[in-house]
Simulated assay, not measured.
Amino acid sequence: MFYKVGITYNLAARFRRLRSDYRWRTLARYSSYQAGQVWDLEHTIHRDFAHLSYSPATAFSGHTECYGEVETILAALPAGTFFLKPVGYDI
């Protein structure tokens, strides 16, 4: 199991385009009308959690944005993040 962090405007459309055999669920969503703020957050996460990086067995668009552990990443998300699944939820 691995986790992907990334920016998208439409989750359903994004995962349809991935064209991979992986099953997916959304754990958290951060929304903002400030595109620069979202961009900065994504890059901060990728930089600060590079040590948790994971390489999926099958590459897909966005495979370089994957992580083997998610709890510390979720805990670092800013106020206003909508959590669809609680931390520690068995996905």
Rank of each mutant, 00 (worst) to 15 (best):
55 S>H: 13
11 L>C: 06
4 K>C: 01
22 Y>N: 07
18 L>M: 13
18 L>R: 07
83 F>C: 04
58 T>P: 04
32 S>P: 07
1 M>V: 12
5 V>G: 05
55 S>W: 02
39 W>V: 12
61 S>W: 01
9 Y>T: 15
12 A>F: 10
29 R>L: 13
88 G>I: 00
60 F>C: 04
24 W>Q: 10
86 P>D: 07
61 S>K: 08
24 W>T: 10
9 Y>W: 11
34 Q>K: 13
54 Y>R: 11
21 D>T: 12
56 P>K: 03
11 L>K: 12
35 A>D: 10
24 W>I: 02
4 K>R: 11
10 N>V: 04
56 P>M: 07
69 E>G: 14
32 S>M: 03
61 S>P: 00
42 E>P: 06
80 G>S: 07
37 Q>Y: 07
31 S>V: 12
24 W>S: 12
47 R>Q: 15
27 L>S: 01
56 P>Y: 07
27 L>F: 07
50 A>H: 14
18 L>N: 05
53 S>L: 09
69 E>M: 09
41 L>M: 09
15 F>Q: 06
28 A>S: 04
46 H>G: 05
70 V>M: 00
89 Y>G: 02
57 A>T: 10
36 G>C: 06
39 W>D: 15
68 G>C: 06
60 F>L: 02
18 L>F: 06
47 R>V: 02
48 D>E: 15
28 A>T: 04
64 T>L: 12
83 F>T: 00
35 A>S: 10
47 R>S: 15
78 P>Y: 03
58 T>V: 14
6 G>A: 01
82 F>C: 11
1 M>E: 10
45 I>F: 07
18 L>D: 05
70 V>G: 02
89 Y>T: 04
70 V>A: 07
59 A>K: 09
57 A>E: 13
33 Y>Q: 13
34 Q>D: 15
77 L>C: 04
66 C>V: 06
88 G>S: 08
55 S>P: 00
75 A>W: 03
30 Y>P: 02
23 R>L: 14
